[in-house]
Amino acid sequence: MSKADKDSGAGAAGEGGEAPAPAPNKKKKLMLFGAIGAVLLLGGGGGAYMLLGSSGKTPAQEEAAAEASAKEGGGAGEKGGEKEGEKGKEAAHFVDVPAMVVNLRSADGASRFLKLHFVLVPGDKGNPEAITAKLPLLLDAYQPFLRELRPDDLAGSAAVYRVKEEMLVRAHQTLGDGAVKDVLIQDLIQQ
């Protein structure tokens, strides 16, 4: 086909109404990309607001927490500075345990390691000083359990929950019931 035939074919297509058809497709694509961009922008902005701007609690939850802290602290006669001091004390109640590195059992004999960093939350019958004093006993109770884990035991989303629950059981056995309320796992790295 010669250049003249192509030009005449293009003119005929323009007169026949076939050439304007791609223009609406381009408009649809442009609108689609614009809509996708707007959704991503709004989603990113909403996510940033939730992450940085809000406490993550509904107003009813915040109100219930305020009432509970007022009941614990002695009522409405407290000053704002005293309440902030209590919050600082609550943050000091956590017992940060240094990171542990243990060997994992593997069926193929390959070297596998687990690095675990966690924080203990004292319960009603425990205080941070007593837990810190008995920390070597607690770590000794954790060692056999962690060394018996296999890489397959750490696979999946429920693995952290199972490890956390077993650590809490061993904390209750070692330190007594009520001494530790929760185990907060900060890092769980398998190599």
Rank of each mutant, 00 (worst) to 15 (best):
G81V: 08
G80Q: 13
G80R: 12
A159T: 12
L175P: 00
M50I: 13
V101A: 15
S2D: 09
E86V: 07
G176D: 03
G14A: 14
P122Q: 05
K83Y: 05
K87W: 10
G46N: 13
F33C: 02
R162F: 12
P59H: 11
L154P: 01
A130M: 07
V180K: 03
A107F: 12
A70V: 04
P144W: 08
A64G: 11
L52M: 15
L40C: 11
G9S: 08
V95Y: 03
V95K: 06
N127T: 05
N127G: 02
L116K: 03
G34T: 08
A133G: 08
E18H: 05
K3R: 13
A133P: 04
K57E: 10
G45K: 02
G81F: 01
E78V: 14
E63G: 13
M1T: 06
E78G: 14
A4F: 00
K83L: 14
L116Q: 04
K115T: 15
R150L: 13
A12L: 00
A4V: 07
L139R: 07
K71P: 01
A23L: 13
G14T: 06
M50Q: 14
K28F: 05
L168T: 10
D5L: 02
I189Y: 11
L184W: 13
A65R: 12
G16F: 04
G156K: 06
S55N: 15
F118Y: 11
A99L: 03
A91V: 01
L138P: 00
F118W: 09
V183C: 10
E78D: 09
A66S: 08
G9H: 04
K27L: 11
R147A: 12
L175N: 01
D152V: 15
L30G: 04
N127E: 03
P22F: 04
